[in-house]
Structures are given as structure tokens and as C-alpha cells.
């Protein structure tokens, strides 16, 4: 039996941790040099700025708004999935029988 070579797994996690720490240190140094000293998170400066509406709920981009382009482009794919899997109990039987039939044909060699 072939021995599993760990060298095959090109994964040196401690290196990644070191890289992460170096990036953090660089981030802090850059922040100290370029960020403004008079920034106070507890004042109005710390509040987010929303344009267009004063209604707080409308200022939120909700989960349904995210990836709308993706959903819109693949609408026909999602519609066909919804038609195929309507989650009725009869659906389970139907799909199970179809897959049993396909697998029997393949495994027993009936298609050969």
C-alpha cells in the first residue's frame, strides 16, 4: 500500500499564520502613519453615513437584495429547479424510483 506523503499536502499553516501577523503589523503601522489623529469613534464621526433616505430600515441592504444580478441571470435555472423539486412527499417517491431505475440499469449492466 502506497504511503500517504504529507509533502503532497502543500500546506504549511504556521507560514500562513506568520503572513497574517505580518500583514496585521503592516496594517497597524500604515494606520498610524496615514489615519487622522482626531478621529473619535464615539462621536458622530463613528456613525455610518447613508444618503438618499432618513428611514433607518430603508438604509439597510437586506439579504434578498444581495447577488440580485446572479439570481436574475440564472432565473430560468432556478425556475426549472423549483419545478423539479417542489418538496411534496410524492416528489421523494418519484425521484427515488427514477434513481433506482437508472442505477439498476447501470449496475446490472443492462445498458451494455
Amino acid at each position: 500500500m502506497h504511503e500517504f506523503e504529507l509533502e503532497y499536502l502543500n500546506w504549511i499553516p504556521l507560514l500562513w499564520v506568520c503572513v497574517f501577523l505580518i500583514i496585521m503589523v503592516l496594517f497597524i503601522i500604515i494606520g498610524k502613519i496615514f489615519f487622522r489623529d482626531d478621529f473619535d469613534e464615539m462621536s458622530e464621526q463613528g456613525l455610518p453615513f447613508y444618503s438618499g433616505t432618513s428611514n433607518k430600515m430603508l438604509q439597510l441592504i437586506t439579504a434578498s437584495n444581495l447577488y440580485w444580478g446572479f439570481k436574475h441571470t440564472l432565473q430560468s435555472y432556478f425556475n426549472s429547479l423549483n419545478r423539479l423539486f417542489i418538496s411534496n412527499l410524492g416528489d421523494f417517491i418519484q425521484w427515488f424510483i427514477i434513481i433506482v431505475a437508472i442505477m439498476l440499469l447501470i449496475i446490472t449492466g443492462a445498458l451494455m
Binding site: 423539486f85 416528489d91 434513481i99 433506482v100 442505477m103 449496475i107 449492466g109
Partner: peptide
Amino acid sequence: DKIAIVMLILPLAMKCGVVPMHMW
């Protein structure tokens, strides 16, 4: 034997939620 293997494997695949037997 082969039919039996299909009958043993598919129910377990269904319980794992393999598509297209996943909607539950």
C-alpha cells in the same frame, strides 16, 4: 447481488441528502 447492492446503497444516499433525493 447487484440489485441488492443498489437497494442497500440508494436508501443510505437518500438519508445523506444526495441530489436529486435531497429536498427533505
